[in-house]
Simulated scan of single mutants.
Amino acid sequence: MTGGSEGVRHSAEYYADPRPPVALFGRGGQPDRFMLALEGLAARLEPLTSRWRPGHPPPESAGDLTVRVAAVEHPAPDVAALTLVPAGPGTVLPPWQPGHHVDVVLGGGVVRQYSLTGDPADRSGYRIAVRRIEGGAGSGLVHGLAAGDTVGLRGPRNAFPFSRADRYLFVAGGIGITPVLPMVRAAHAAGREFRFVYTGRDRESMPFRDELPEGADVFVRPDDEYGIPDADELLTGFTPGTAVYVCGPAPLINALRRRIPEGTPFFSERFSPSPVVDGRRFEVRLGRSGPVLTVPEDESALDVVRRVRPETAYSCRQGFCGTCRVGLLAGVPDHRDRPTGGSPRGGEFALCVSRAEEGERIVLDL
């Protein structure tokens, strides 16, 4: 999310369910109103009471930040690595940590999320890396940028938190190295025990191989030399207590998640939206007197709404960037978004992931 392919971000996944508890007094499995109210209050207070510290998001930048493309490199044939610096004199880029990303505002208002993959200690510039995808609007725009061009940034934000652990297993698939590389460097600099397995089609297609720390337990594993990896092989040497960080295609993430012991700290970012889980059919009304649309069990409200309102804005499709949030006028939502940076939901509904219970009607300010 990851900051790579088409810029479709991939939210961190945990075993814990981020949704509020169901109603305590028999409301048919619907979210408890009291817990929803507490969650909203906490979201409003968090930005006022928390201070940034390791493992937490840095402060949000004040609005959009204009940056200039200082350099464009190609660490792999279809990968563009951009160095972004402040466009104005005296501007300092906000701090960030491994795992953070920025929202990049491209031509025509297209917004995509890309992982920061440079050095967090270097506040003079950010680096992102994007693999070109055939037909991808975001990646096509990024690959069309040249030194001297300007783009807008929002963030940085944290949807892939890098936490302190005694031992790590890092696994990256192709462009999935973008958020993982700063983590590997940080673990190496801190003297933490870790193993990093870097997979890809072939060596030529795998960017930043020359930036991996020397003397560390790093295995560069191209498929054309070793074959398609399986989860057992990738987990070689895994011991209890190891924190697992994975970024790459969904099959890679799912295979590892199925094989590791329950309770293992497991963090992942994926290249595509997560499938709908435990979805139930519900309805959305567009405005108080607009059309009523049925959202099937296996589709998102965003997909359904965009069939009749194709101009509806979206970006990450995984519930953290906030682009597709719209006003909630009526109905009891099942909030499934995970807003980053303490961003409050308020009376809003994230079209890409949030849902409602069977038969519920949500009225949206659309």
Rank of each mutant, 00 (worst) to 15 (best):
S5E: 13
G7Q: 04
V8H: 15
S11G: 14
A12L: 04
E13Q: 09
Y15T: 11
L24V: 11
G28S: 10
L36N: 09
L38Y: 14
R53E: 03
P54H: 01
G55T: 06
L65N: 03
V67I: 05
R68D: 04
A70F: 02
A76G: 07
A76T: 06
A80P: 06
V85D: 04
P89C: 10
W96M: 00
P98N: 02
V104I: 12
G109M: 15
V111Y: 10
P120T: 09
G125Y: 00
Y126H: 10
I128L: 04
E134M: 06
G138D: 01
G140Y: 15
G140M: 13
G140P: 11
G144N: 03
A146I: 08
A147S: 12
R154P: 02
F160K: 00
P161I: 00
L169G: 01
F170P: 03
G174E: 13
G174P: 13
T178N: 02
L181E: 03
L181R: 05
V184L: 14
A190Y: 10
Y198N: 03
Y198F: 11
T199R: 06
R201A: 14
D210R: 10
G215S: 11
D217K: 05
D217Y: 13
V220A: 07
D223F: 05
D223L: 14
D224M: 14
D232P: 09
L235Y: 02
F238V: 01
P240F: 09
Y245E: 00
V246Y: 05
C247F: 04
P249F: 12
P251R: 09
N254P: 14
R257Y: 05
E262G: 11
T264A: 11
T264P: 07
S268I: 11
E269S: 09
E269D: 11
F271T: 08
S272M: 12
S274C: 12
V276K: 03
V277A: 13
V277C: 10
D278C: 03
G279W: 07
R280N: 02
E283T: 04
V284D: 03
G287W: 03
L293K: 02
L293T: 07
L302H: 15
R306T: 10
P310H: 09
P310A: 09
T312S: 08
Q318D: 12
F320G: 14
F320C: 08
C321P: 09
V326S: 01
V332E: 13
V332H: 15
P333E: 05
G341F: 05
G341Y: 01
G341T: 03
G347Y: 09
E348C: 15
L351N: 02
V353N: 08
S354H: 06
E357R: 08
E357L: 12
E360F: 03
V363R: 01
L364R: 05
L366S: 06
